[in-house]
Amino acid sequence: MRLLWLLVVTLLSVSAYGVIETYEFDTDLQRQRYNAFVEELRCPKCQNQNLSGSDSAIAVDLRRQVHSMIMDGKSDMEITQYMVDRYGDFILYKPRFSGASLALWLTPLVLLGIGVGVWLTMSVRRNVSQPAPTTLDDAQRARLESLLEDDKSANGEGR
């Protein structure tokens, strides 16, 4: 039981990274937007880290850029566009819906479709293969009885 709990706790824990930098904001909204951006933007130097988790020089620069753009009153769209202009769609952890990212967005739906398809055909097949309930006459019942006897004695030899 304790082991189970340990397992559950380990599996549910999320890794928390964060670089401590002191940026001043005028409003809470600005702070929230900043935090959202550094979580959602990907460090271009790293393979799989967001800006908030990376200590690389470019991530530091980009955090400063996000901060200064927020303080300059730039909109979220403008900041995102600024980043994409320079680093491409790579920098967005949530890529925009475009021709290039079509497969990325649609593959899960296609897989879901395939799954539903398989499930449906299997359940249909199971319904079909179930014999319709019939009543047995005495001769058939006797035969069934003997078959079951045979089966019991042949137990262990597999099906």
């Binding site: 271009p44 130097k45 690389s56 020089a57 470019i58 620069d61 980009l62 850029q65 320079r86 680093y87 491409g88």
Partner: peptide
């Protein structure tokens, strides 16, 4: 460097 999209 930022305008160029430099990563390093």
């Amino acid at each position: 460097g930022l305008d160029l999209g430099v990563t390093g």
